[in-house]
Design a protein around this nucleic acid. Sequence first.
DNA 1: CGGCTGCTTGAATAGAGTCAATAAACGTGG
DNA 2: CCACGTTTATTGACTCTATTCAAGCAGCCG
Lengths: 232, 232
Amino acid sequence: MVMLTPAEQAALARLEERERQLRRGAVLLRERDPAAEMFILKSGIMMSSVMLADGSRQILRFHFAGDMLAVASLVYNEATETITALSPCTVCPFERSLFAALIADHPRIAALVMVFNQIERAALTDRLAALGRTSAKARVAATLIELRNRRRALDREITTRFTLGLTQEEIGDATGLTAVHVNRMLRQLEDEGMITRDNGNVTFTDERALARAANFVDRYAGLDLGWLPAAR
Amino acid sequence: MVMLTPAEQAALARLEERERQLRRGAVLLRERDPAAEMFILKSGIMMSSVMLADGSRQILRFHFAGDMLAVASLVYNEATETITALSPCTVCPFERSLFAALIADHPRIAALVMVFNQIERAALTDRLAALGRTSAKARVAATLIELRNRRRALDREITTRFTLGLTQEEIGDATGLTAVHVNRMLRQLEDEGMITRDNGNVTFTDERALARAANFVDRYAGLDLGWLPAAR
DNA sequence: CGGCTGCTTGAATAGAGTCAATAAACGTGG
DNA sequence: CCACGTTTATTGACTCTATTCAAGCAGCCG
């Protein structure tokens, strides 16, 4: 989408010098723990979540390969979110000071980071609107579509069938529902012919209807990167 | 908090060369309209919101003096959010190309913009958790506290009494509730002795209890800006 | 085999929405 | 300054969506 100069590529590569493996369920960073590191997610799927006073959990975001994690470490001394592996993962940790140097030296990379910030902001506000103003069924449908799309972005083989990789409780924590109600909504989507399920996999059987049920908006359409500053 | 060099200050001042006045209710930017401008909010209170297919509205964020608006114009050709004045406002419009030049020339300002992005991200995720996992009463209480705090940040006179400046319907659109239910929750907070109300003003009579009811977290505590690159 | 964890379903309950009617506040033009 | 129309606030009665509680089942792993 955007061509990077060799110098820029080399600078980015420095962020990926170290690697760390995580098993499903492993916690990369826990809310309120001191944190001065950031991470690139190299492979696998992770999530970030927060815990509320009453012990309930809200999943904020799912992370896929290529995402930059714990960017809040730039600004906060303590982690604001818990980051957990949903599948076996590889992450590349780096110091925030290294990142600071990177954006000071490479304004175009700084600009690109802002681009991703804005895309993420759009994703968060879509979820906000979904939680505030859409039905349980719509939220579950939207979650299914988002998971499929992000998986598909990394693996062109994937079309209508994919591995969910989440428990129904996790879907509930992402959508603000109970696991029980998530189950009922999945059943309803199935009964209405929009999806079928077979142990952990979901198949979209009427994607049009599912997208309609989900109030889906594609945030990667309509991107415009023409404003980026010139390479240095 | 952070000292800017004269050159940096001058560069920032260029963003505020033009001014535009808005009346309450005026729309600065409408969702899906083409947009290549950004804005600094100089005075007044605004909100950004999205409209859903069924005509319901979700308010995403309230904006106060000093906020940068429509940052998504950096990345999207069409506005992703509607931005509306909640009081008489003054905004300073500028081209996104001017902003691109600014961050290319002044890495420290680029870094500061990222800081604000992250603070905003934290605010959005707090709201996400509130919508997903807290009761109607908690959401209304949290909204009251947020409005008071942001007003107080600009006007040290304000302590426990402040002007709401929002209709109950607007509070509902921010919290994902109906206006009717917002009314009931305000009444309940009043009956329980946490607030009192007099035409459009709210007074906190038991702030401790209100903060507890709201699950409140102060996101401006724990900031750490030591990582910022050196001035150039 | 036995003990998890996750999935499924039903019945009862609670929290928030809808509908409707009234009252109060506000704004505007005469 | 007042009258009138509009928006906003308030409250009650009823409905419905999602939660809670509970029980049974399936699959997986040591």
